[in-house]
Simulated scan of single mutants.
Amino acid sequence: MLRFARLTLILTAVLVGRIGLTQVVIDAGHGGNDAGATGFWQEDMVFEKDLTFAASVALAEALELRGIYAYQARQGDQTLPLSERVARATRHCPGGLFISLHVDTFTDSQTTSGGMRFFSLNDRGIKQTLPEDVNPKRLTRYREHAERVSAQMMNYLHDAQWRYFAKIERRNFQVLHNTACPAILVELGMMNNKHDMAWLNDPDRLAQRMDGLAQAVQYYLQSEKEL
């Protein structure tokens, strides 16, 4: 019965996405020839590209269980240029959200903090990449909505300590340029933080974290008006 109910929700979500209603594009950072940051877990080398893809799959499943169609920009361990990631976001996310997943690394005292960080495009990024036919007020509005989603994601983090360390910042990341919807880059944690590596390499704990992000997306989509 549970398997049938899950299948029904996923099929419904897929149909919703195909007829052009709200959907979420998930971009698993790096991939293929681009391994991203590296770290170690239980004496084995771990690549950022593998952690982000596992998180992308878990987040997509959590969203689809809530009837929200999720399109994964990277379908496996493939090399995907930033320009193509943005192009796929533009094609698939009108009326929805674009979420790019990454795992950071530090060599200074910040390695002890860990926790998620949420990024939206800063003013410089908006000015640098503004298409001639797009009103800058619309891109600014996209950013406002992206930061509302980020705030909800912080609220839905299950661990109070995680909420304490979580931050919302603005940066000029290329993958956030010119998307046709609110765009967020999420740094899931630190490759050289043992606590972050523990949950990122634990499928059950990873699913729990991604479920919290999915709850936040669902709340946003239900409560916010269309752009």
Rank of each mutant, 00 (worst) to 15 (best):
N33G: 14
D34R: 14
A35M: 09
A35Q: 11
A37Y: 01
A37Q: 07
F40N: 06
M45A: 12
M45W: 05
F47W: 11
D50R: 01
L51N: 03
T52H: 04
T52N: 10
T52L: 05
F53P: 00
A54W: 01
A54H: 03
A55C: 08
A55W: 00
A58C: 04
A58P: 01
L59A: 04
A62H: 08
A62M: 07
E64Q: 15
E64Y: 06
L65C: 05
G67V: 02
A70P: 06
A70E: 04
Y71H: 12
Q72H: 04
Q72E: 14
Q72L: 14
G76L: 03
G76H: 07
D77Y: 03
D77Q: 03
Q78T: 13
L80M: 15
L80F: 13
L82M: 06
E84W: 03
E84N: 04
R85D: 05
A87K: 08
R88A: 09
A89G: 15
A89H: 04
R91M: 10
R91C: 04
H92G: 00
C93I: 01
G96A: 03
G96E: 00
I99W: 02
H102P: 05
V103I: 14
D104H: 09
D104N: 15
D104S: 12
F106S: 05
T107A: 08
S109L: 08
S109E: 14
S109H: 11
S109T: 09
Q110Y: 09
Q110K: 10
T111Y: 01
S113Y: 09
S113E: 12
G114E: 05
G115T: 07
M116E: 08
M116S: 11
R117P: 00
F118A: 03
F119I: 04
S120Y: 02
L121H: 01
G125D: 07
K127W: 11
Q128E: 15
Q128A: 15
T129L: 05
T129C: 10
P131T: 09
E132Q: 13
E132V: 11
D133F: 04
V134R: 11
V134Q: 09
P136M: 08
R138L: 15
R138I: 14
T140W: 12
T140H: 13
T140I: 10
T140M: 13
Y142G: 03
Y142F: 15
R143M: 08
R143I: 08
E144R: 13
E144Y: 12
E144F: 11
H145T: 03
E147L: 09
S150I: 06
A151I: 04
Y156H: 15
Y156R: 11
H158N: 12
H158Q: 13
R163E: 08
Y164F: 11
A166I: 07
A166R: 01
K167M: 10
K167R: 15
I168K: 09
E169P: 01
E169T: 06
R170C: 01
R171F: 06
R171L: 08
N172Q: 10
